[in-house]
């Protein structure tokens, strides 16, 4: 017997759609100078945020984003049932430390750069299922912690490949509630891990595009909705070239998303002046663009409804050296103005 709140193979339909009552976003200097600079709550130019290390800076940003969201919602930490968070540091340590200082019951998540959307889905499930009244969902990434962990030391004299993306420094947090005013989460499509044999750790766009395309196509098939049903389809951090690849793959399945499809990694930076190559990436990329710009577009009535797809590349430091390919994943969430 099919599950009551499931539609098709991978899509959840929320009967009491959870409301996004508040959002908090914190970014670094480069993001603040980008085209979306004004949409973020807090910008910290110093990569150390006045702390002693980049790791400390990242957890500070995560805490600040969470506190900003709480303040906007007029809530204290006691008002939150669960804190769902993840990041890119080894063993998601930024989230663990942020959870330590917030003191809210915590579920740590890892979906690489798709973590924020994974959090939105699980948070919505907890609320629609009646297990929580209010859930805080957050994700963070930091350019320097990610670079030194996954690529080369920041001061190393390397040339970045043109397909490489720039890890967004920042953190985004939203509060989901069973009732209140704000945009609502109506559907979610949980993605499969897809691997089309890409193995280049400097080109995550090509790694993740098939997973994003698979989830988007699956969403259309499960719900029976055409792409035109959405004002915008937006992926997490495919970047310029990944977006083209995903658009091609979606087209192969007979869905035309041209003109209504973009990517958070393209929106957040100015490609011509900021020297970010393919665009933005990292957990914070989809978190701050969704929590900032996209929610504001809904509130302003410029968008009625969008399908957001958080995308992640699943690798660790050693797996590419061990000759493994890099699989990708994409999680879709429908957010509507209400």
């Amino acid at each position: 017997m099919p599950a009551a709140k499931k539609q098709g193979l991978q899509t959840l339909v929320f009967q009491n759609p959870p409301v996004i009552v508040a959002a908090g976003t914190v970014v670094g200097g480069k993001e603040a100078q980008g085209p979306l600079g004004k949409t973020f709550d807090l910008a910290i130019d110093d990569p150390y945020c006045g702390e002693k290390s980049w790791e400390h800076a990242e957890r500070r940003m995560l805490e600040d984003a969470a506190k900003t969201a709480l303040k906007k919602a007029g809530l204290g930490t006691q008002g939150i049932d669960f804190f769902l968070a993840g990041d890119l540091e080894n063993q998601i340590l930024a989230s663990s430390f942020a959870a330590r200082s917030l003191g809210i019951p915590h579920l740590g998540l890892f979906g690489a750069c798709s973590t924020f959307y994974e959090g939105l889905i699980i948070g919505a499930v907890l609320i629609d299922g009646g297990f929580a009244e209010k859930v805080l969902v957050a994700a963070s990434s930091h350019c320097c912690t990610a670079e030194k962990q996954f690529r080369f030391p920041t001061e190393q004299g390397v040339q970045r490949s043109l397909a490489q993306s720039w890890t967004v420094t920042g953190a985004g947090a939203v509060i989901l509630a069973s009732q209140g005013a704000g945009p609502v989460i109506t559907h979610a499509t949980v993605g499969k891990v897809i691997d089309l044999g890409q193995s280049d750790p400097t080109n995550f766009g090509a790694v993740m595009a098939p997973a994003a395309a698979d989830t988007i196509v699956r969403h259309f098939q499960d719900t029976g909705r055409p792409p035109e049903f959405y004002d915008l389809v937006v992926t997490g951090d495919l970047g310029i070239y990944g977006r083209e690849l995903a658009q091609g793959l979606i087209g192969d399945h007979g869905y035309r998303v041209e003109g209504r499809y973009t990517d958070c990694g393209i929106l957040i930076y100015d490609h011509d002046t900021q020297d970010t190559h393919a665009g933005g990436s990292g957990c914070a990329c989809s978190a701050v663009v969704t929590g900032g710009y996209l929610l504001q577009q809904l509130q302003a009535g410029k968008l009625q409804r969008f399908l957001g797809v958080g995308t992640g590349a699943l690798l660790n430091v050693d797996s590419p050296k061990q000759g493994e390919t890099i699989p990708g994943i994409g999680h879709g969430v429908v957010i509507e103005r209400r």
């Binding site: 043109l162 397909a163 890409q198 080109n203 090509a206 070239y241 091609g248 393919a278």
Partner: peptide
């Protein structure tokens, strides 16, 4: 496909 799209 990626060979066509990837920047050189």
């Amino acid at each position: 496909f990626t060979d066509q799209i990837n920047p050189k």
